[in-house]
Design a protein around this nucleic acid. Structure first.
Lengths: 304, 304
DNA sequence: CTGAAAGCGCTTACAG
DNA sequence: CTGAAAGCGCTTACAG
């Protein structure tokens, strides 16, 4: 084929919108340029940002993502995994909503690479998570910096690993004797915690670090209903930076962002590396959190 | 091959976990058993339930779903569409968050079937949406049934098609002269609307139909802060049944559910039918909404 | 009914 | 450098 013929072919190919069939190509390259994202996070609060990061990182590499929401159903999970394997995914990313639970399906003996995010992985695997201790430190140090001395931590169930880790970090900064109120992940619990704190006749806190944004929302609403001003009388800081909650709280919530999109991006690049046969150090990767300053602590005009 | 050889092969195939390569199979069947879901709904409030329905309907047919979140970026959308076409998707479902907007990419001349959900489709296409008028009627009739006479509708921006449709249905049931307050989709607007209604010296409503759950939440919080009891003094009904908002409102919100999962299921089956060459009547399919009775209107002990 | 061959749309390795 | 052939893992249509 002469040079000009070649050019002509190229030109016409572009003109008629020729696109190579990825299935045929995959057949011999042993690469499908697809990965599977398995999740048991129904509300998508964690999954969607992670997914956005994965997609963002991989779209440039021509990789598309199968999303499989499996709830807690082992049979359904198995079906989805098999469907992904049939389609020759280059790898799987398993995400959950807590670090100390496994997905209801065993991914440890597949012949494709698996990367875990926000869920417990098989031994020898790569797992991504946020650095909860560092995130908690950011929150508590911010309260301290604003002069808050009488701190309280109102958080979720103690049996969550990340709850314990955040509580430990809080105690290390605020003081080992500072109180921690364990409860559930709801606004209602935030209300109840305030009721308890303000009715027990003890010292009233001037800084409340909440285990998530929903609790913080409940706390702030409860304080307002008692005529206690946020942030003038009490500073409140949340965890998650769940936009829809944090931005609509009155006042808007200062909170810790777990950088889930960045986490997704790294998980995506890692599973891609493994798929390409590059070697990746196994273990748990903790990604730093970031404090998002709004108005619930004060200090938002400090320009930090 | 004798019968027993055949059985032996089958048995061993099952034992060693043989699974046919879907890529190879797709190459000649011209079916990849994948579809693409394109969405510009960042929070996933609409997309996730729709996705769950699609997945639920298609997993039994061995079909997996590529999720592509495209924000409002035409270039990104184009890249994702091309990646899906390269992978020979059997069809595409395009979802958005409003009926009167198109996605930032033209899907009308692809050689795969496209089904639309919650977004404006090309002419001659199949589009799924909820029946907003019927949903609004459910809400207003419920208020009427509970004896509410002085109704008000507090809703989103008038330039949304579904806002106008809900408002029209409300007026048809409540009375053409009944007030409609157009605003934005936020809690803040709910607060502001209550402030306006209770300060203008006019008639005070005893039933408020809100355009979405966030507005309803703002309305209920504002009423409580004024010492007005919900539902004793005023009944409030929302729209969306966004669990995370509706269930945490005090009192929990009676609201209209758009049955997004069912909508996804039907969209999935339809795109599959088209992919299999079955003919499908083009046009807009309106799916009925359902009223979810909680406590914000009263009547929740009626056992309806 | 059984078994070998052709072919889906590509890419890679090889002969000319 | 160019062009034809082999082959990825299947399924389908056909000859025996």
């Amino acid at each position: 084929m002469g040079l000009e013929t070649r050019e002509r072919v190229k030109r016409i190919a572009a003109e008629i919108g020729y696109r190579p069939n990825a299935l045929a190509r995959g057949l011999l390259s042993k690469r499908s340029f697809t990965i599977g994202l398995l999740t048991n996070d129904t509300y998508g609060r964690f999954t969607l940002p992670v997914m956005a990061g994965i997609s963002d990182a991989l779209v440039d590499h021509g990789v598309s993502v199968f999303l499989c929401a499996i709830e807690e159903d082992p049979a359904l999970a198995q079906i989805h995994v098999e469907a992904m394997l049939d389609k020759q995914v280059d790898g799987i990313i398993a995400t959950g909503k807590r670090l100390d639970r496994r997905l209801p399906v065993d991914l440890s003996n597949l012949n494709v690479p698996v990367v875990y995010a926000f869920t417990e992985g098989a031994s020898g695997s790569v797992t991504f998570r946020s650095d909860d201790a560092q995130g908690a430190r950011l929150a508590v140090e911010w309260l301290a910096k604003l002069g808050r001395k009488r701190m309280v931590h109102v958080t979720g169930p103690e049996n969550f690993f990340s709850v314990r880790e955040r509580a430990d970090a809080y105690r290390r900064v605020a003081g080992e004797e500072r109180p921690v109120l364990f409860g559930v992940w709801s606004e209602t619990w935030g209300h109840e915690a305030v009721a308890r704190l303000w009715s027990d006749g003890g010292e009233k806190p001037d800084g409340i670090f909440c285990g998530n944004d929903q609790i913080a929302r409940g706390v702030i609403d409860a304080l307002r209903e008692r005529g206690i001003r946020v942030p003038q009388d009490v500073s409140v800081v949340g965890f998650d930076n769940w936009e829809i909650v944090a931005a609509q709280t009155r006042p808007p919530l200062t909170t810790v962002d777990m950088e889930l999109k960045e986490l997704g991006r790294q998980a995506g690049l890692t599973v891609l590396a493994l798929a390409e046969g590059r070697s990746v150090e196994p273990g748990i990767r903790k990604l730093p959190c970031r404090l998002v300053v709004r108005q619930s602590c004060g200090g938002d005009t400090l320009g930090i």
